[in-house]
């Protein structure tokens, strides 16, 4: 559905997008995860025809965006990082206006607008102007506006940034529902949990480059070459780490401050023999848990960027 090859964009001396390539399959939710200024919005702007690339090719459903931007725009819905509907107009008029931009006839656009207002639980807003909506309501209406012409492809730029937990949850549910209906979704976010929860595949973007891309298990596997098990023990024990290591060759054992034992090995660790051994030497085990890296660990390891940087305020200038 989306094919991007060698995309590059420079603003002055800043390379916002640096030779990135990726593909998104039909009906997939593809997430672009990166800190502010990483090049997420610049990439969306180029893909939607709002910005011209310096180099590279973009095809959306077989349409060359550089050559036929208007044809491509007809099949896409766009939710920008700011809710940008018309402040003076109410929800219904805003949706009808957006539908008219796609050439929908009056009766069709009015029916669709009513259905969307209902679906997004905004049907009780009446004649209230957009400027009087709460942040969450504004975001929901902006997403509804992007769906008014039933696009095959939806671009969501930071859809849940700055809104309340309930609205975020509703938006995530809606994204999943759209996927079920066959819509392809390209989503940018700086929330790791959001990418983890809803994306089929994730690309880490940092300093304009894609550092890694894949499904969640693929990304995890790319950094996790070892198996690790943590044994929570009862109180203070003098666990013989060296003895454990000699008993189970190839394994490394470390004793944590809370007296739990972390055992790592390139091979799978046989749980029962270890437990038996510990029992025999008088170590009481309360819990054994396999340690897997979180997406946050993977992100930090692959990009070298601390996860706290993901939520730092945007540095203006590197993107539009």
């Amino acid at each position: 559905m989306i094919s991007v090859t060698g995309l590059t964009k420079t603003y002055g001396s800043v390379c916002a997008v640096n030779n990135i390539s990726f593909e998104v399959a039909k009906g997939e939710i593809f997430g672009f995860l990166g800190p502010n200024g990483a090049g997420k919005t610049s990439t969306i702007n180029i893909m939607t025809g709002l910005s011209r690339p310096d180099a590279g090719e973009i095809e959306l459903a077989g349409i060359d965006v550089r050559r036929q931007p208007k044809k491509a725009q007809a099949i896409m819905g766009i939710v920008p990082d700011e809710s940008n509907l018309y402040n003076e107009m109410d929800g219904f008029d805003n949706l009808c206006f957006c539908a008219a931009l796609y050439g929908m006839p009056k009766s069709e656009r009015e029916g669709k607008a009513r259905r969307l207002l209902e679906q997004f639980r905004l049907d009780d807003t009446g004649k209230r102007p957009f400027k009087a909506f709460s942040k969450g309501m504004r975001r929901r209406l902006t997403i509804a506006a992007a769906l008014i012409h039933s696009p095959q492809l939806l671009f969501l730029d930071e859809p849940t940034t700055g809104i309340d937990v309930e609205s975020s949850r509703q938006i995530r549910d809606l994204i999943r529902e759209l996927k079920r209906q066959g819509t392809t979704i390209f989503l940018t976010t700086h929330y790791i949990e959001e990418a983890e929860r809803i994306c089929d595949r994730i690309a880490f973007i940092a300093r304009g480059q894609i550092v890694a891309a894949g499904t969640l298990p693929e990304l995890m596997a790319s950094v996790s070459h070892q198996h690790a098990i943590r044994f929570v023990t009862a109180g203070s024990t003098n666990t013989p780490a060296a003895e454990l290591e000699s008993q189970f060759p190839g394994s490394q054992v470390s004793i944590q401050a809370d007296h739990s034992i972390v055992m790592t090995s390139k091979q799978r660790i046989p749980l029962l023999p270890v437990m038996k051994f510990l029992h025999n030497i008088g170590v009481e085990v309360h819990e054994a848990r396999e340690l897997t890296p979180s997406l946050e660990d993977v992100f930090v390891k692959l990009t070298g960027i601390q996860s706290s940087a993901l939520t730092e305020p945007e540095r203006k200038g590197s993107t539009r």
């Binding site: 939607t48 709002l50 725009q73 007809a74 920008p80 940008n84 509907l85 402040n87 931009l101 050439g103």
Partner: peptide
């Protein structure tokens, strides 16, 4: 207010 982007992104 960035609402002008809607016109630039419309297939017209």
């Amino acid at each position: 207010g960035r609402s002008f982007e809607r016109l630039l992104l419309a297939p017209i």
